[in-house]
Amino acid sequence: MEFIIWGKYQSRAERLASYLDDCNIHYIHSDQSILVRYMSSLIKSLNIILKSKSDTFIIQLPPNLIIYLIPFIKMFNKRAKIILDMHNGATRGNWGKLPFIWKIMNKYSDLIIVHNEDYFNEITSTGKVTTKLIEVLPDPPAEKHRTTILGLNHSDFLKEGKTNVLIPCSYNPDEPIFELVELAKMNPDLHLILTGNKNKAFKLLGDREIPKNITFSGFISAEEYKYLFLHADVVMGLTKNENIQLSVSTESLSFGRPVILSDTKTLRKLYPSGFIFTDNQPEHMNISIKHYLDDYKKLTKELSEVREEKINMWNVKLLQLRGEYNL
């Protein structure tokens, strides 16, 4: 089984692959210009597909350009099974407007998996995708084979004398980045650590003054990310949009570490306890951080109970899909 992702790292993919037999993850990434990057990624993806001895391919969306390879996969391997791991961005903005992609999906895909029921309802309401193709498969709440952190007993990103707040970011429009800058200005005792593409962050912020208690870490290793997740004083996952299941919420279950999430209907429905929910305004985030620190022990106990429930539900769902689609 081959899992193709256009990106540097994806925690959902790592956890999902740990439950699937002989699943090889292929990260395809380039820092070149957009046109060169996408053309190069298409060629590399096709090369992986043609050389593979597997008949099962999981393709993560977006970017949706890779959809145009699906007919070629079926042409060269008539037994090929195509599974699309569709994230919210695949149906929003320009990615959802590419010509013929919905026809290709409906004709050649064997299965489309989405993270949660709200996003399932969003997609099916458009009528663009055949409903029988789509299944809800949440992020696995834990790795099947729990990994340990080897050779890492500190991180230079953690500052003594400050309340270190880890915030995984992609700097997409749904994230309250400007509000985080105001939060840092409001409370100088905080130290905000924003992960992700540093260049994208600076481009987004432009000439805006950045307070000294914000650190843009850039891309960091999976091991350092795990270390920060476990040792920062606070972890937050933020979005302005509904129907999104944030990766940090599932990482919270995986690592057994409570987090603060944006207060959306989708996230509240998915996680009824074990989490703090916040409005994205700076003053509300500041209050939520205080509540998080005050209620940490209680949250940890609740999270443990939620984790066990989610693991049981996940195993049942995966068993069902394996039976129906021979995964």
Score class of each variant (00 low, 15 high):
M1K: 08
K8Y: 02
K8W: 05
Q10T: 01
Y19N: 08
I25S: 06
Y27R: 13
H29M: 00
V36C: 02
Y38D: 11
S45I: 09
I49G: 05
I49R: 04
L50M: 14
P62Y: 00
P62F: 00
N64T: 14
N64R: 08
P71K: 02
I73K: 13
I73R: 06
K74D: 07
F76Y: 15
L84C: 10
L84A: 09
D85L: 02
T91P: 00
N94Y: 13
G96S: 15
L98V: 01
L98Q: 13
I101R: 06
D110Y: 02
E117R: 11
Y119S: 12
Y119R: 04
I123Y: 00
T124W: 00
G127F: 07
K128P: 01
K128E: 05
I134E: 04
V136T: 12
D139L: 10
G151K: 11
S155T: 07
E160R: 10
G161A: 08
K162I: 04
T163A: 02
T163H: 00
T163R: 09
L166M: 07
F178Q: 10
E179L: 03
V181I: 15
L183N: 08
K185F: 04
L192N: 09
N197T: 08
N197C: 05
N199F: 07
N199R: 12
F202D: 03
I210V: 15
K212G: 13
T215W: 02
E224L: 07
Y225E: 12
K226F: 04
Y227K: 11
A232L: 09
V235L: 10
M236S: 02
M236C: 11
L238R: 08
T239F: 05
K240G: 04
E242N: 12
I244Y: 10
V248A: 14
L253E: 09
L253S: 05
S254I: 01
S262I: 12
K265N: 10
Y271L: 10
S273M: 08
I276M: 06
T278Y: 00
T278M: 06
Q281L: 11
E283M: 08
H284F: 10
I287F: 10
K297E: 15
T300R: 14
L303Y: 01
E305L: 15
R307A: 08
R307G: 05
K310V: 03
V316M: 13
L318S: 07
R322L: 03
G323S: 09
G323D: 11
N326P: 00
L327V: 10
